[in-house]
């Protein structure tokens, strides 16, 4: 083999590749390791020496700092979970349905509709924020989860992805035979099309979940009742002076916000990587 001939050079190069990869891996992991370790150390330990790989014994003390303060991880967790789960369910279900209309039916406005979806894709989130904010105040949907969940039904990026996935994988023959068996269109979609889309739905579910979980801007201006706060809002408040002094508690709070994401990620990392790839190949 050609590779073997210049094995000296190529071994050297391989080692170089590994070194770079390992450095990058450390770069990815280090901040989180510091965060995890410091979550267990007291504020004075952290001030004396911010980097340490030996866990301290102040985890509980740090946790107690949250007592009665506006950082309430469990409330934030539940609120974020409700919003993220509902919004993800909406996104996945309705995006698949919308994609289905684009793939399975011939209707006059289809082209225009698809163009519209592509245009919506372009609208930056912050652009509509001012109108959205004024509008939500007018209709009294402040402090409600509705404006954070319902808009998820119209998720152009997900529709686009679903369409790209559905085009080659949905066979119209199956749909036809179901029709001949007398199945209604809605039932065909729910019973036949949805199961076919499982892999695409799984990956999009993860993206949508992560995106909703991490959303800050709109929740920040809409959820003013602190009982309704999501996790990222609470994290953003950590910069407030109340916690500035409690470094251990800040790190612990950060850990608590990312922990659910870590769990989801490492359980589903296979789908995530595959999902990103899926999006790339099809476009």
């Amino acid at each position: 083999m050609a590779a073997r001939k210049r094995s000296g050079l190529s071994t050297g190069f391989t080692i170089f590749q590994y070194i770079i990869c390992i450095i990058l891996a450390i770069l990815s992991l280090l901040p989180f390791i510091i965060m995890l370790v410091n979550a267990t150390r007291s504020s004075s330990e952290i001030q004396a020496n911010a980097i340490s790989f030996i866990p301290g014994k102040s985890l509980l003390t740090n946790y107690k700092v949250f007592d009665g303060k506006s950082f309430n991880p469990w409330t934030g967790f539940i609120n974020s979970a409700i919003i993220s789960v509902c919004a993800t369910a909406c996104t996945i279900y309705f995006s698949t349905l919308t994609a289905y209309t684009l793939v399975a039916y011939d209707w006059k406005a289809k082209k225009a509709f698809f163009a519209l979806i592509m245009c919506v894709l372009m609208i930056p989130g912050q652009v509509t924020a001012i109108g959205f904010y004024q509008f939500m105040y007018k209709v009294g949907l402040v402090n409600s989860f509705i404006p954070l969940i319902l808009p998820a039904i119209a998720a152009p990026a997900t529709v686009f992805f679903m369409r790209q996935y559905m085009l080659p994988s949905l066979s119209m023959e199956i749909v036809q035979s179901a029709r001949i068996d007398g199945a209604g269109e809605f039932r065909i979609f729910n019973q036949i099309v949805l199961p076919l889309m499982k892999p695409a739905m799984a990956t999009q579910a993860i993206f949508s979940f992560v995106a909703t979980w991490n959303a800050l801007f709109i929740p920040l201006i809409l959820l003013i009742d602190r009982k309704k706060w999501t996790m990222p809002i609470m994290v953003a408040q950590l910069q407030g002076d109340m916690y500035k002094t409690e470094y251990g508690a800040v790190y612990l709070a950060l850990v608590m916000t990312v922990l659910p994401l870590f769990v989801v990620y490492f359980l589903l990392s296979k789908y995530i990587i595959a999902g990103v790839a899926l999006g790339g190949v099809k476009e």
């Binding site: 509902c86 369910a89 909406c90 989860f145």
Partner: peptide, 18 residues
Amino acid sequence: KKAISLIAALSMLLGCTA
């Protein structure tokens, strides 16, 4: 299908209670 419809139903329910 059931899971999806359950999620859909749940989300509507939650949405409404919210």
